[in-house]
């Protein structure tokens, strides 16, 4: 589904990703862990198409398509969706309006018509209930004045409405209280299916207790230096990153 090969990325002339390989199959959940500044957010931002990153080498394929040739919005419509580490506030634009515009953009790209209003209302109400968000959030400006945890829930709400094929969630667990963590994890788990994949960036094993990954990767200094199953996350939690580094240098 997603195939990242030998990816080299520089930001303002500085090399951040230095030959990264990653393959994600449908139905899988992958967790990416690694020290601060390793390039985790950079990876998901490059896949989503954010400006300011220069790919100097390597390729990204999504369902066989060359992602680097696609516009940001084309990637999203193709089912590649990024959940933000720091969701953006957009004053004056209603949350529900953004949701509807996003959903209709994806539907249009698939050759479907706009979603009928009653159907849409039913969908968002259902999904916000799932995220335990009061319907009043739908009428508020996008992320404006939302608490950190509310913003994160809102990101997952968007995922539930848009049903991406590959959801990339960057530190979706940061700033969540224990109950919110469960709500968010349940939301993410409800996205799991045989034809969908999830890429989680996280620092903590905690999240992985709720969302069990199929693969865990350790990203250090722009490369994936170690991959394993969920037990790797436990090991990292217990031992930190140093041993992985030493191992990879050796």
């Amino acid at each position: 589904m997603l195939e990242v090969k030998d990816l080299h990325v520089t930001v303002e002339g500085k090399a951040i990703l230095k030959g990264l390989d990653l393959t994600v199959q449908p139905g899988e959940v992958h967790a990416i862990m690694g020290p601060n500044g390793a390039g985790k957010s950079t990876l998901s931002a490059v896949i989503a198409g954010k400006d300011g990153y220069e790919v100097t080498q390597g390729s990204i394929l999504f369902e066989g398509q060359d992602v680097l040739e696609m516009e940001i919005e084309e990637r999203a419509r193709a089912g590649l969706l990024l959940g933000f580490q720091y969701p953006i506030e957009i004053p004056g634009v209603k949350n529900i309006y953004l949701l509807k515009a996003a959903l209709n953009a994806a539907r249009e790209a698939r050759g479907e018509g706009e979603i009928p209003a009653p159907e849409f209302m039913k969908l968002v109400r259902e999904k916000s209930a799932e995220m335990q968000m009061d319907p009043s959030f739908l009428q508020r400006a996008v992320n404006e004045g939302f608490s950190g945890g509310e913003k994160k829930r809102n990101e997952i709400l968007q995922m539930l409405v848009l049903q991406p094929k590959l959801a990339m969630l960057d530190e979706i667990d940061s700033g969540l209280d224990i109950d919110a963590m469960k709500v968010v994890a349940n939301g993410v788990n409800s996205l799991r299916s045989a034809d969908r994949a999830i890429l989680l960036v996280t620092h903590y094993q905690r999240l992985l207790n709720h969302i069990e990954p199929d693969r865990v990767h350790v990203l250090v200094d722009g490369r994936i230096v170690k991959s394993g199953d969920k037990s790797l996350a436990l090991e990292l939690e217990a031992r930190g990153y140093d041993w992985v580094l030493e191992e990879s240098v050796a």
Binding site: G49, D51, E71, L81, F84, I88, A101, A109
Partner: peptide
């Protein structure tokens, strides 16, 4: 730019 990116990363085209 980050507001624009946020919207586009939801599939909304640049002009919209």
């Amino acid at each position: 730019d980050d507001q624009l990116f946020y919207c586009r990363a939801r599939g909304i085209d640049e002009e919209d």
